[in-house]
Amino acid sequence: MFHHLRYLENLDRLDVWPSRRIVVDRINPFKALSEEEFLCRYSLNKECANNVIQQIQDALAHEVDSRGCPVPPFLQVLITLQYLGTGNHQLAISDYSDVSQSYVSKCVVRVSRAIGNICHKHIKLPSHSEVNRIMEDFQLIAGMPSVIGCIGCTHIAINRPPGDQFELFRNRTGYFSMKVQAVCGPQQQFYSFVSGWYGSVHDSLIFDKSYLRQELEKNLQPGYLLGDCEYPCRRYLHTPVLNPCTPQERRYNASHCRTHSTVKRAFGLLKRRFAFLEKRLQTDLNNTKMIIVAAAVLHNIAIKQNVPMPGETNDQICNESQEDHHDGPSQIAKKTLESEQKNDVGAKERDYIIRNYF
């Protein structure tokens, strides 16, 4: 007892300074994780993720979080990839990355904006030198000639939006959503991607208001797009025959269905690689639109670099994509389409394809 008291008295005579807190460097996933572990956590492999970082790091400042710890650009990108790829709560991601939840929220928006700013480099219509190869690849699917892309829409579920116009976001199925329209190629890469429309808006209206239609109207692109019955048949957009009567028309419809499923598979791939798209998004509407576009850009980069899907098979992706969007055109849409297709130039060109190829 007296020995301990003497020891404490001696301590009082010493100038004891508290040791300085040393902040250990955050873990570097590029070094700490295997390729498979990295892919499962970030939905991209190391090479692809590094490619994304190189493209946008100049737009991302070296920051510190609320605790004064540095967060370099590469870690900001990985935080965003983990959010998009896993769909985990921001709090779980903040714990894994050793940052605050509020920082994760700001980081996702900032990095998504930087990725969205390079959209024009990765989502664009094929050049004239690429068109012939694309037509050949599409024709190999089911014999459909001269196809340069497949167009379709999908819904991204969101929380009930604020304001008086929230009902505009309620889609035909009954939940609130943001509608996305895309054109994809034979390898499920996106050539055009439009995000931010109300869930209740008809597919054909989105197309009519799009920059893509203006470009196609100029007749600068050879070939045509394939669209489902939600679209009117036009010179540059061919749809299925609504009431096939001949063997040729039925063969055409079967080929159209198999070829057009490419866009459904593309949406399926997008939602499986970036699992947050399968959940009800809770971000601000403007941020939601931007994050969805960022996911599409990353999707195209992954397709170009042949990045495998983490833990998924092609059969799973195909089966899930079949339930992606439509329950068939409405009766009003059917009547409108039938009246348009009787005299439309597109219907005549479609008939030419049917007579000569099917």
Rank of each mutant, 00 (worst) to 15 (best):
R265C: 13
S200F: 09
L237P: 06
L212Q: 09
I303G: 02
P310N: 13
C245Q: 14
E215V: 15
L270K: 07
F267W: 07
T246A: 10
L281G: 04
K264M: 04
L269F: 08
T262Q: 05
R251Q: 11
A275N: 10
P232C: 08
N253W: 07
D284T: 03
D208L: 09
P222K: 04
D203P: 11
A294V: 05
D203I: 12
E215R: 14
R235A: 05
K289F: 05
Y252G: 07
N287Q: 15
L277D: 00
S210R: 12
S255H: 01
E215K: 06
T283C: 04
H299I: 00
L237C: 15
I206D: 06
R280E: 10
L237H: 09
Y231W: 04
K279H: 09
K218C: 07
A254V: 01
A254Y: 09
L220Q: 02
Y252T: 08
C257E: 12
I291P: 00
S200G: 04
K209L: 14
C233P: 12
L270G: 05
R250F: 06
K209A: 13
I303R: 06
F274S: 05
V307G: 14
K304Y: 06
A254E: 13
Y252F: 15
W197C: 11
K264Y: 03
C245F: 02
R273F: 03
N300H: 08
R213C: 10
C245R: 12
V263R: 00
R251S: 15
L277I: 01
W197D: 07
L226D: 01
S200I: 13
Q282E: 11
P247A: 08
R251H: 13
K279A: 12
Q305M: 15
C245I: 02
I292C: 04
R265E: 03
Y231P: 07
P240C: 13
K279P: 09
A302M: 08
P222E: 08
W197E: 14
T246G: 11
K209T: 11
C229D: 07
T288C: 15
S255P: 02
Y224I: 01
I292P: 11
Y252P: 12
E217A: 13
V263T: 13
N286F: 12
P310L: 06
S204Q: 10
H202Y: 06
A275H: 08
L285K: 14
C233F: 10
Y231K: 02
L225T: 00
K218W: 04
V201W: 04
L285S: 02
P240W: 00
Y252C: 05
S261Y: 00
S210M: 12
H260K: 13
Q214L: 03
D228W: 05
S261L: 01
C229I: 03
N286Q: 15
P244F: 13
S261P: 01
V263Q: 03
S204T: 14
